[in-house]
Structures are given as structure tokens and as C-alpha cells.
Design a binder for these strands. Structure first.
Lengths: 108, 108
DNA sequence: GTCACATTTCAATAGGTTTTGAAGTATGAA
DNA sequence: TTCATACTTCAAAACCTATTGAAATGTGAC
């Protein structure tokens, strides 16, 4: 992950609708959810949802496959993990205080 | 950390100049650096640096104190840590694949 | 006080993002 | 083939963010 890719991913996360979509897609896991379901859950019109889903797809946070006439979107967990490690390692140089925030919360 | 605060912090990170500032400030640690030094390192004019530093201050990623006629900026490592745990826990529900991306890289 | 330096603020401009609704494409059912 | 459904694309408008250079503020030195 380089700087430009990280900036693009942070941009993708810098929107309430998209962050909600990500959370929902994390919740449904590997099986994913259709664009329509995602739209409904976050309360967005089809075109608005499509726009936000495409923003997240472009940066790689989510992937999609067409299943009959539905398009299934799902999170690429490895990409999210890479973004987190970019923030921890490349940005924060594995700073102890930053890492403690994670261990205190039993994340690692 | 709530959704709106997380979105604001991701917005702050969604800019190359600001991400470089953060990296530099992480590097200098507790002692921090003056606005002028930060500006020089990232290659920004004083007013442009001031604008970006204020964006990061507003969301809490960095703090500042005046030292004589200089203003020293430094990273709030705990705030960065909180953002990372928001992403891991609240967004990714401590998903195994996401966490593996961190342990593989010996972050935690 | 006057001056220089460090930084911020302001106003204008340029550029990018988001929303909206309408039109278009893709798939499957009848 | 015709129709309905699922989704995307497009163009316009609205909104937000970034850059610039000039003016303002705040601090210390003389």
C-alpha cells in the first residue's frame, strides 16, 4: 500500500453513507448483499447507493459479482486490514501508545 | 468514538499533504515541530500548511502549544489509536482476516 | 515604540464530491 | 418478444474542499 492508495481509501471512508455500507457488508460477511439490500439498509436511493458502492469498489474496499439479475457486494477484508496496518506501521511507526489503544480494547 | 467523529478523522487523513504532515509529526514524537518546520517538510506555503494543520487539529489528530513566537504541533497518538480501534472493532467487528493483516506484519 | 519573524485569517478562485431524477443496460419471466 | 425488476450511467445542480496571495495578528528583539 502506498500513500496515494491509502489517501484514496481514507476518502472512501470519509462519508457516512459509505461507512454505514461498509459496516453492513462486514456484518453480512463472505456471502455479501445485493446493491438493493445495501441501499435499503443505509436509506439511499438506487442511484445514490450505486454511486457510493462504485466509490468503494474503485479503491478496492469492496468487490462485486453478478448473481442473476442482482449484483452482490462484499467486503475485501484483506484490503481493510492492509489499510489498518498502513496506518499503524507506515504512518505511526508502530507507536506504543497507538498500539496500546488496540491491545487495551483486546483487538489483538 | 462515534460515526461522525470517525468520518471527520478519515476526511482529515484523505489528503496527501495532511498524511505527510501526520507522518512527519509521528516521527518527531512528543516534542513536536513548529508550523514552519512542518510546512517546509511537506513543501507547503505557510498559509496552506496552516489550513491543513487546522483541519487536523479540529478533528483532534494533532494538538498545539505556542512556544514563544513558534507554534508547536504534535500528534495525539491516543486519538490515532482510537481511530484504528474504531475501524477494527466498530467497523470490522474484529474480523479475523483483518486482524491477521496486522499480526502477520508483527504490529500487535 | 518600531521592526522582523512566525503564523493565521480572509476573500477569491478553482476544483472535486454528492445528490437528484431521468434515461440506459442487463437479466430473467411470461 | 414483451415486460418487469435490478442496477448503473448521465447531466445538472448544489455543496464542500483546496489553493493562492494579501492582509492581519501575535511575539520577541532592538
Amino acid at each position: 500500500m502506498n500513500e496515494a492508495l491509502a489517501v484514496a481509501k481514507f476518502s472512501a471512508l470519509a462519508n457516512t453513507t459509505r461507512l454505514r455500507m461498509l459496516k453492513f457488508l462486514v456484518g453480512v460477511g463472505e456471502s455479501g448483499a445485493s446493491a438493493g439490500e445495501v441501499a435499503e439498509v443505509v436509506g439511499a436511493t438506487p442511484s445514490r447507493a450505486s454511486f457510493h458502492l462504485s466509490v468503494m469498489s474503485e479503491v478496492g474496499l469492496i468487490k462485486s459479482t453478478r448473481v442473476s439479475r442482482y449484483i452482490t457486494y462484499y467486503v475485501d477484508f484483506a484490503v481493510v486490514g492492509d489499510l489498518i496496518s498502513y496506518l499503524m506501521q507506515d504512518c505511526c511507526q508502530n507507536n506504543k501508545t497507538v498500539m496500546d489503544c488496540c491491545s487495551v480494547k483486546n483487538i489483538c
